[in-house]
Design a binder for these strands. Structure first.
Lengths: 191, 191
DNA sequence: TGCACCCGAATGAACGTTCAATTGCTAAAT
DNA sequence: ATTTAGCAATTGAACGTTCATTCGGGTGCA
């Protein structure tokens, strides 16, 4: 697949991302996606077998791009710093790419997610987080609670914060972000 | 509006709730909603002027029902107990009414929410939470951080936990719930 | 008699997908 | 170097279906 093709596929991805944000999954006709991406309607079907497949592929694409960004730290940092770093990178990425964020949110809370939930293919991001939290527990830095508890606070607070910011509710982003990750740290650290 | 009518309107609500969970907003035809509610298609238009209005009304209906359940505590309980109580009530309600939960989630992350976001009508639930957190800060029990920070941890962790549970990821519900609210409390309490 | 409630077939627009035709590119054959 | 064959990429009009909404008529109660 040459550069031109990659460009077209990505143009379709980006157009879908933008339009789905504005009009929702089913409020976005294929014809509109095509027009926005400057391709013919039929061209989309050269790259994707159906609208559903397009949405699914776009979801994977968004998730991969997000992961690339948040797990890019020096391995020898102190644990606490990594804990703060990953969280901040995630929030920053989502705030800077809010269309990606909202697309993922929309996807997760729609029936689409059921289609890929069962797939046993260990999802990179979750695995990484699992290892990271395990490391913290084994070294006695984090309280010994279940992985799903940790993930709920860590990711739950992050996404809620991004929602507040993108809704325009939360004025002081930087301060709010610092307060938040510090609260989480206080909650999960030992003692 | 007599009882029979209330029943029909509620039947339409409940059918919409169920079907939207299964097929999404636009994957659910009005005809199917009508069939599931045992009314004629045209009858829905006697109660709602359009599909969008139905969805909007259902959203309000769900939010009201949820609020009724979580703010039903004795005012003279110690603050910490109220803090735990409200959170647990919310989680329990959502787990027991997961269709309501997922509908609200779907709504919030869809373009629908934009339609009602601007409305200045102070939303009951948020107001209640605002007052509750303010009380905690003024009495020195909670750390003095912004409302949006507190809401992000409190609600963010709750919804994440409900997602884990309803996805079937989180096996030990009760234990996970206790761990989680305790972590939040540790994070937001003073000292 | 009037009004609220209810019905479900009919309407017409919108949409996902298909397809026959065209272009552009690559590489083998001459 | 030129031709040729073949496949990938692209097009957008056409197709058939689906769906939100309408409407003319019906029922029962005040």
């Amino acid at each position: 697949m040459n550069v031109q093709l990659l460009n077209k596929k990505e143009a379709i991805f980006e157009s879908t991302l933008k339009l789905v944000n504005e009009y929702g999954f089913h409020g976005t006709p294929m014809s509109q996606i095509a027009a926005h991406a400057n391709v013919a309607t039929g061209t989309i079907y050269h790259y994707f077998s159906s609208k559903d497949e397009l949405i699914l592929e776009l979801f994977k694409y968004c998730r991969e791009k997000t992961n690339e960004h948040i797990f890019s730290f020096e391995e020898d940092l102190p644990y606490k710093e990594k804990f703060f770093y990953i969280w901040n990178r995630l929030v920053e990425y989502y705030v800077a790419h809010r269309e990606t964020f909202w697309f993922i949110e929309q996807f997760y809370s729609s029936p689409y997610y059921e289609l890929i939930k069962q797939k046993k293919t260990t999802y990179y991001g979750v695995d990484k987080m699992h290892l990271f939290f395990e490391e913290g527990i084994k070294s006695g830095i984090l309280r010994n609670v279940s992985f799903y508890t940790l993930i709920s606070v860590y990711i739950g607070a992050a996404t809620s914060h991004v929602k507040m910011v993108t809704y325009g509710f939360c004025k002081m982003q930087a301060k709010g972000r610092e307060e938040l990750i510090e609260i989480i740290w206080n909650g999960v650290k030992n003692q």
